[in-house]
């Protein structure tokens, strides 16, 4: 088990593993997202209240899932990097952060596009929207601090610490924002309690969520490989790798 971790931690070994895994992840992601979106957008029945506008959840919900999961992954990578000094963890974290921020932005944008026909407004200081907005700020902070340092090594550590501090705060922020919202506006609408979805609506959503996770895995693997080459470009194994090829 430990030997496996240590091997995985070596950039050279990870580079090879990622090369073998990433095509499968990309294929899986493409297939799931294709099936999920065609099913969800074209074949799933329209909502009896919201009509066709509900279909945006097939993008919105998976993006929101990823937005939160990626921050957890950032903090976990930060922890691994700070405790065991495994460089791969930091390379992956550096590549994941922009994707997480993008997913948060997609969740916010698609949410407000959905909010316009449904609630009649682009923005509502609803608990979920607010905590997503704060999450976006946390992502931006992690991304900015990494670049603020002259030495990449310091930036990596600072980003790791900030991600860990952020992940402790996320539940606190989430619950305090929920509490704040219920105080200010007593349930004029509830997006938290949707009527239970029928299976035909729910299945494509599940497929889309899985597809987004597969995309996250594929994206991270591919980008981490590029990052390995960028950071380890001076190492012999990288030079040999490219000299061998015509």
């Amino acid at each position: 088990m430990w030997a496996f971790f240590h091997k995985l931690g070596s950039p050279r070994w990870f580079y090879g593993i990622a090369a073998r895994l990433s095509p499968w992840c990309w294929a899986l992601a493409l297939a799931l997202i294709l099936i999920g979106s065609v099913w969800g957008l074209a074949f799933a029945p329209a909502d009896y209240q919201q009509g066709n506008s509900f279909r945006i959840i097939y993008v919105h919900v998976p993006a929101a899932f990823l937005a939160q999961s990626i921050f957890m992954a950032l903090a976990a990578s930060g922890f691994v990097f700070m405790v065991w000094k495994i460089k791969i963890a930091d390379m992956a974290a550096a590549m994941m952060a922009p994707l997480g921020a993008a997913m948060t932005a997609i969740a916010l944008l698609s949410g407000s596009v959905w909010g316009k026909p449904t609630w009649g407004t682009w923005w509502q200081w609803d608990a979920r929207l607010t905590s997503m907005l704060i999450l976006l700020f946390l992502y931006l902070g992690v991304m900015l601090i990494r670049r603020a340092f002259a030495r990449p090594q310091s930036g990596a550590k600072a980003a790791s610490v900030l991600a860990m501090v952020g992940v402790i705060n996320i539940p606190i922020i989430k619950y305090s924002v929920e509490w704040w919202n219920t105080l200010h506006q007593p349930a004029s609408f509830t997006i938290t309690e949707r009527p239970a979805m029928p299976l035909e609506m729910w299945m494509p959503l599940l497929i889309m969520v899985l597809g987004f996770y597969a995309f996250f895995a594929a994206f991270t693997l591919t980008r981490t490989r590029t990052e390995i080459l960028r950071r380890e470009g001076h190492k012999r194994w990288v030079k040999e790798l490219f000299e061998e090829r015509p």
Binding site: I134, F137, L138, L140, G141, L144, I145, A148, L162, V165, G166, N169, I172, I173, S176, V177, W179, W180, L183
Partner: peptide, 20 residues
Amino acid sequence: MLLSLLVLPLFMPVLIFGTG
């Protein structure tokens, strides 16, 4: 500048309960 960006999101729970 960066400091304010990093810590303001973390202050929000305190703000909420203080004004609450």
